[in-house]
Design a protein around this nucleic acid. Structure first.
Lengths: 123, 123, 123, 123
DNA sequence: GTGGTCTAGACCACC
DNA sequence: GTGGTCTAGACCACA
């Protein structure tokens, strides 16, 4: 469901949060749907439960999750709106990566090539 | 000469290393050229000298710099070769960022838009 | 476990690195074993944590350690192989010292005497 | 006449001082003999003149050299005695190197092997 | 608790 | 002036 890159400099909990935002953005998760449990997700991602818990906690605070004690976490009604504001963050993170790539000497043609490859790889 | 983004999750010393690789990739710095001194660069980037020193030390260990105590740091003869292998790293770092952006729900059109904007912004 | 000589011209972090290589060479530390934590070792050696951290970082980069944030540092599977290549370095460092001693006028009998003494002193 | 190892952690000026002590110890240089000029030696060793000057200055202060203004530096009458005290330093430096080699995992047989090799290499 | 990055400032070896 | 090592202590990400 969610994919993680342990070697990325981006914190794991941020990646998990992004993952949920993405699932809602793509319509794979809708308001009212149950999120997996912290233990389940931590097992699947091979990530410490505390790290998953932190992502869930922050998503709750942001009003993206609706956590009901004893039941679990659910996608909130407000989630789709929060996703949109989250997209801005993602865009600017990507923009930063692009700038860094340019500074490392990558040409625009190299960059376009990378974009094409990722696009092709995608299921 | 080199640009740094303090708010990036990428470590400053890594950004500095990337910066030098980029300057060599673009031909702005050639084997034998002197790099700015640690103190000079740290003043210009407003970064602690130790942080710059760490970048320089790692570039030396990698054989990209030729550092001589009391004299300064110089671009090594092997630098252009190291740059090429470094470009692979940059590409895959960018690829990771792209994947992460996709996972966060960004559409390919959004991504193309970001690329276009950065390209336009560039001097 | 590891011994340090603060008055040696050899940097402390290099001595720490050598120490770990030696422990693996002697079989006192095996792949998968946990290294002491940075803070623990720094307290025991009475050396600044940053200095120990530098040694650990370099051992990680060399693939000798496997460092996991929040968990600790472990001897990597590849460590025994790295040790072997490291022994070459140690030999040539010793060779350099011997040459220097000869150049300073030490006779071969003096040198053999020093070797014998160190050998006797050793526990 | 004198050999230098630029990659050694031992300071160049110390190596130069050791070199002169060695030449006197071996009888290749006797009291009254002229030492090479700073400029000449610095050119031959490809070392900065200041570095050679520092070695000469310290040798003068120690009473090993006899520097006559406008004429140059000469081996002093006291030099042979100073050599003997210098040998102690060399021995303990060698002892430190041996201890470090042992800590890095080198076996006594490896060490004996290195000694044999250097001995064989020597002209 | 762990490792990792960064700052601040000292001292050294060398040019 | 240069690069290199070391200390001291802060903050972060993660278990």
């Amino acid at each position: 469901m969610i994919r993680i890159d342990a070697s990325s400099p981006v914190p794991l909990y941020d990646q998990i949060k992004s993952g949920f935002r993405g699932l809602v953005a793509k319509g794979l998760l809708k308001p009212g749907d149950a999120a997996p449990s912290i233990r389940e997700l931590s097992a699947k991602l091979k990530v410490n439960p505390n790290t998953v818990a932190r992502a869930f906690r922050e998503l709750s605070v942001e009003g993206f999750f609706d956590s009901r004690r004893g039941e679990g976490s659910f996608i909130s009604e407000a989630a789709p709106r929060r996703v949109k504001s989250g997209l801005g963050e993602s865009s600017s993170a990507l923009a930063d990566s692009l700038k860094l790539a340019r500074r490392s000497g990558l040409g625009w043609d190299d960059i376009e090539e990378v974009v094409r490859e990722i696009r092709k790889e995608e299921p």
